[in-house]
Design a protein around this nucleic acid. Structure first.
Lengths: 220, 220
DNA sequence: AGTCTGTATTGACCACAAGTCAATAGTTGA
DNA sequence: TCAACTATTGACTTGTGGTCAATACAGACT
């Protein structure tokens, strides 16, 4: 090093020094979130390392921790985004359709969204960290919101509010949809429309099975 | 201090040295499996450390690795045991009952078993490592075996073999049962009998909804 | 008794990834 | 030009899964 007269700055300028790149907080955060979503979508949680993501973003690990306090926080933030997108897609179907068309439209939106993000859906559902309470909360929140959207203003809804049997059944139906969809993502033996029709038939069969007998004629 | 073996040896020889305890391979293995099952039943996979289990067994970590090559192997071995117990419980119901009684008996066995091991069931189902292919295989195997047991020799079975719609529905029904059961473990709003009856009603409703119309009268 | 052999057992060690923190470089405003 | 602020770094710590050569113990065979 020739210190002498030359300032540190000059020396630095002489060689092609790598300028640090500064981004606005929001941009950087968004960039990291996007990278994290992509990473967690095709690898399992444990197979994604913070160093990986930092390297992809061309920043140091320390900086990543400046934006997200822990790896879980980063994961959860991405999960929340995906969850919100899914809920938004499903809740945006028109509410003034006939019950069966509401069901069709809702399931269509659901399946559309999942088809477009199937890798992410599968990884997040079965490769995530089920033990984390925050993760469990997010997943549970999605389920509740989807079920609520689905049942809201349905003509048969008033028959069932607060009915434990019915609410258990709704819970179960969500499980039905998720399992069938997950299986279908991995090994699609039905067309998307066939799957949707199957799910619609099932939900109406369930509602009919649970309705008090005197109301059954109304539901056909 | 040069902490060589010589030092340790001398010290050991001086004071009354603790005798090593030797166990037969099978006993040791069984002990470790039992401890692992207990540990993984009330803490999540990541919250259980190999050192914990070794400490509980009063052995060194190295010895544990002599019996189980990796932490996952230990986990999977425990999971396999639990899975086998569940399958055995459910498949041991008599096969010569009427369809609806078969369903009742099978679900009773399932719920009984889960009630007795609810902590383990919940942790294993949502706290495990879904990303591990071996784990996924075990869980998937249980599902298939239970579904097969359930459907075997049912009078309506011949109508459906190889039918993609039906098999998707079976898959979904399993999801229904699992979700409803999991929710019920956490927050039991129905009695066990009520839950069982609900699940029975649902499965018959599903079968009926999927049966070709001309066969429907037969199924009531 | 000795001693030989097989193996159950140990503890020190490694690798790697999550998470910490003081120091530094770049920006912005006075 | 200086000062304040913060985005950014890189070296560090810590915890945990996993490895391995050395060792202690039991049983068998002189």
């Amino acid at each position: 090093m020739p210190p002498g007269r030359t300032t540190r700055r000059a020396v630095r300028a002489a060689r092609s020094r790598p300028r640090r790149i500064r981004l606005e907080t929001d941009q950087r955060r968004a960039q990291l979130l996007a990278l994290a979503r992509a990473a967690f979508s095709d690898r399992a949680y444990d197979d994604v390392s913070i160093d990986d993501i930092a390297r992809e973003a061309k920043i140091s690990k320390g900086l990543l921790y400046h934006y997200f306090p822990t790896k879980r926080d980063l994961y959860v933030a991405g999960l929340r985004e995906i969850a919100a997108e899914l809920v938004r897609a499903v809740t945006s179907v028109p509410a003034d359709l006939a019950p069966i068309d509401r069901a069709r439209a809702g399931l269509d939106a659901y399946l559309d969204h999942i088809t477009r993000h199937s890798r992410a859906y599968v990884s997040l559902m079965q490769g995530g960290i089920g033990s984390d309470p925050e993760v469990a909360d997010v997943v549970d929140g999605v389920r509740r919101q989807l079920a609520d959207t689905f049942l809201k203003d349905q003509p048969f809804a008033p028959l069932f509010v607060g009915n434990a049997r019915f609410e258990t059944a709704v819970r179960g139906w969500i499980g039905f949809v998720e399992h069938a969809t997950l299986e279908w993502c991995v090994n699609p033996r039905l067309s998307r429309v066939e799957l949707r029709e199957l799910l619609v038939e099932i939900v109406f069969a369930i509602v009919q099975a649970l309705a008090p007998p005197m109301f059954k004629p109304r539901l056909g």
